[in-house]
Amino acid sequence: DVAKAIINLAVYGKAQNRSYERLALLVDTVGPRLSGSKNLEKAIQIMYQNLQQDGLEKVHLEPVRIPHWERGEESAVMLEPRIHKIAILGLGSSIGTPPEGITAEVLVVTSFDELQRRASEARGKIVVYNQPYINYSRTVQYRTQGAVEAAKVGALASLIRSVASFSIYSPHTGIQEYQDGVPKIPTACITVEDAEMMSRMASHGIKIVIQLKMGAKTYPDTDSFNTVAEITGSKYPEQVVLVSGHLDSWDVGQGAMDDGGGAFISWEALSLIKDLGLRPKRTLRLVLWTAEEQGGVGAFQYYQLHKVNISNYSLVMESDAGTFLPTGLQFTGSEKARAIMEEVMSLLQPLNITQVLSHGEGTDINFWIQAGVPGASLLDDLYKYFFFHHSHGDTMTVMDPKQMNVAAAVWAVVSYVVADMEEMLPRS
């Protein structure tokens, strides 16, 4: 009755609320953990100690060179048709403005197509994108590519409607990318409310002028670490089931939801298994990635270092889409492996969480999945996720200890059972 024992300990027993309480202690005291920041390195050192004190095995840090970008002071003010202070968050990797800022007329567009049609109007202006929110993966293209597309048509800066499914005047940051051969222009996100307001103004032919000031700077890459701990396998210790979340966050809020929750239910999975005195046949390895938000930098380094052992990886798991109430497991792998995962998930019938869906991919495990290793991501109730994502609102207040208990139970049962099976998951 291993699965029932894990569920009972996590959801009803002594371990209930533990992952929430551990997470709160870290994010309340350390705060946000931006790549390259002292906070992130402090969090890594604390986690290193935590994992050792928890009695996990082979606790160690694997060095990674990571980006160091800081937003500095930033502001935006609408000067025409009226004075209005605009809430902004500079986007990760953006350059800053000159100290006096950029003051320019605004061109509002709702899509890249409209920008192309109105390219002749964009030169010398600040392009404001008021793209509708469709879903994250589609709409986020405006955040990542908005500055490049605006620069191609001669814009001085770009302001992008936050990629959020709901807003109470919250700007949401995130990474953006420049392109070789295209001038770099400052770029920031604005609130849904301001993007829509400027769109309405523009539709009435009203001239809008904004002064944008951003003190963003990119510094040389810095040293960081992926944080690793294990329960070493009893029979096939060289074989691995990897469970993971990322420890870094953006520099706003507390990074409690993204991805403190994922990191801490991954730790909790190993804690639960250890507390029950279980040791699976193959190794359960916890990895807390660094610099995921900068584009999976720590995960790439880990893959480069460990891909030589790829044939020994049975399953790679990542939780990076919230730890609200789980609804199932997203899985990528062969049909045979999927059939096995469906059997594994049937053990979670007591929690009524048995679905195995497609698309197990995640930023930090994609390198392995693309190379043929089965991969799984936790699927949970995403309704609120993009309310808070990359915003000042990503704090412990968003988190629910009971939902984290259930998420940790799912994570522990899946990782343990796959690690304890006589054979590795079959590959395609």
Partner: peptide, 24 residues
């Protein structure tokens, strides 16, 4: 034999199902 690198298992799916069910 634990390693199943080529997706070729020496065990039947029924055997694997029973193994997983024993964890329930």
């Amino acid at each position: 034999k634990a390693i199943c690198k080529n997706g070729i298992s020496k065990r039947t799916f029924e055997e694997i199902k029973e193994e997983i069910a024993s964890c329930g």
